[in-house]
Design a protein around this nucleic acid. Sequence first.
DNA 1: TTATATACATAAAAATCTTAGGTATAAATT
DNA 2: AATTTATACCTAAGATTTTTATGTATATAA
Lengths: 111, 111
Amino acid sequence: MKNSQLYKGSLTTIVMKLLEENGRMYGYEITQKVKEITQGELKITEGALYPALHKLEADGVLEVEVENVDNRLRKYYKLTEKGTTETVNRLAELEDFIRNMQTLVQPKITN
Amino acid sequence: MKNSQLYKGSLTTIVMKLLEENGRMYGYEITQKVKEITQGELKITEGALYPALHKLEADGVLEVEVENVDNRLRKYYKLTEKGTTETVNRLAELEDFIRNMQTLVQPKITN
DNA sequence: TTATATACATAAAAATCTTAGGTATAAATT
DNA sequence: AATTTATACCTAAGATTTTTATGTATATAA
């Protein structure tokens, strides 16, 4: 996704958080939601998203419900119980990460 | 580095920022400094760091000065002019990244 | 004397993402 | 009517980055 490589490694955390917040979402919806929230700054590519969703499903983090809407296929994903627990951990890690990065980058306070 | 995969993609940004701040550093020193700043939370592995330093040098972002201290080799790295410019961009990207991640993760404010 | 700390390095494998396609339907535009 | 855009899924080759596992060598601490 996007130009900055800082987002590498954050895709699954983003997906899990969105599902925690919204109950269930389908892939395309996730790409649109992220674009909307970040005002176009972050664009999740489908080539990254779909394999990631499949892996999370295979790992028992997500479960899928296939539906047919307007003659088009939709695969709704939601967190499993395991996934919900994992999400809590992930968000704690994200907070630590952000805190650490801010500490590393923070200009020194001059006295 | 570390367990959390969120740090993937942030290594070069961290290195560049530290060099901007400290003028010049050698590899081992960088690993220790990061450990110190993050209070042991983030450990940069040498298997990731040394290839990254070599790549930054090859890309003209860093230049190296080899010195012999206490009969041990040290390779001091510092930012080139190009590297200094790059660092400014990187730090701006990092700020955007952190801001976006916070927006994504931030619990909705209920009215 | 053995382990730990310092200081560099590489190479195979794993993980993740980009890029570049592909299929198909519905709606909007020309 | 025809073409483009939006919706909705998918994969596969290649690039990049990191992990894991080593390797070398000196100095210091236990």
